[in-house]
Simulated scan of single mutants.
Amino acid sequence: MTNTIIFDLGAVLIDWNPDYLYTKLFTDEAEMRHFLTNIATSDWNEEQDAGRSLQDGTEWLVAKHPDHEANIRAFYGRWEEMLGEPFHDVVEIFRKLKESGKYKIYALTNWSAETFGVAKARYDFLHWFDGIVVSGEEKLRKPSRDFYQILLDRYRINPEETVFIDDNYRNVLAAREMGIPTIHFTSAAALEEELPAYGVTI
């Protein structure tokens, strides 16, 4: 019987997208795409999610690509401009699950410890969780097994009584390998349809 639900945050509950900032800084779409694909990459950003300081990450990348210094420094200097609206339909599912009183609900997120406070101040629903484990605070990130284990141990979660929801299939597979039932998130409508198969009713 499922009594615990674990949400990822970015691209599930929160719309975070570097395009929101960089469309203001680039006039050429191809140049912007090149910058975000080859310079300020997701792999680079994930090092900050895993605990490297924003300053160290920024200086490392500036040293590697000095011609792009201004745009690199904007990544964290104007980071809040990458935050969009919450995904209201998913937040509504979360609200109904929370108000049902039937489930403990946690978040497991790859997120810099230095920027997570900005999100907590912006999105009220981040205060609804029974607990949140943030990669930047733990110096580990998904898909590391040890990162999932922190959440399971800290809140005494039985994987067999849990469902984990994440948009990143890499993270879904890692959870499955640990015996955690998972839903690969694609949309609020699909999530609402899939939850009953895991014994979760709204």
Results as ranks from 00 to 15, higher is better:
residue 13 L to T: 02
residue 74 A to L: 04
residue 130 D to T: 12
residue 46 E to T: 14
residue 7 F to E: 00
residue 179 G to I: 06
residue 38 N to V: 09
residue 156 R to K: 15
residue 9 L to I: 10
residue 134 V to H: 01
residue 148 Y to V: 09
residue 106 Y to N: 04
residue 6 I to N: 01
residue 85 E to W: 11
residue 120 K to W: 08
residue 97 L to K: 11
residue 120 K to C: 09
residue 25 L to Y: 03
residue 169 Y to T: 11
residue 74 A to D: 01
residue 24 K to T: 13
residue 29 E to F: 14
residue 52 R to V: 13
residue 91 V to C: 07
residue 178 M to A: 11
residue 132 I to Y: 08
residue 191 L to T: 05
residue 97 L to G: 10
residue 36 L to W: 07
residue 140 L to G: 05
residue 17 N to K: 12
residue 12 V to G: 00
residue 89 D to E: 10
residue 3 N to A: 12
residue 73 R to S: 00
residue 185 F to V: 02
residue 93 I to C: 05
residue 71 N to V: 12
residue 127 H to W: 09
residue 53 S to W: 13
residue 105 I to R: 08
residue 77 G to N: 02
residue 142 K to Y: 04
residue 174 A to D: 00
residue 177 E to H: 12
residue 172 V to Y: 03
residue 85 E to M: 11
residue 202 I to S: 14
residue 2 T to E: 00
residue 50 A to D: 05
residue 82 M to H: 05
residue 41 T to G: 02
residue 135 S to F: 05
residue 95 R to I: 06
residue 130 D to H: 14
residue 122 R to A: 11
residue 176 R to D: 04
residue 90 V to W: 03
residue 44 W to K: 05
residue 89 D to C: 10
residue 66 P to T: 04
residue 71 N to K: 14
residue 118 V to M: 09
residue 124 D to N: 12
residue 159 P to W: 12
residue 11 A to P: 03
residue 40 A to K: 08
residue 29 E to Q: 14
residue 90 V to L: 05
residue 65 H to E: 01
residue 161 E to L: 14
residue 11 A to Q: 15
residue 27 T to C: 06
residue 127 H to Y: 08
residue 11 A to T: 13
residue 102 K to V: 01
residue 108 L to V: 13
residue 63 A to I: 07
residue 143 P to Q: 04
residue 170 R to E: 09
residue 131 G to F: 12
residue 99 E to R: 15
residue 97 L to M: 08
residue 199 G to P: 08
residue 181 P to E: 06
residue 83 L to E: 01
residue 24 K to L: 12
residue 27 T to Y: 10
residue 111 W to A: 03
residue 125 F to V: 09
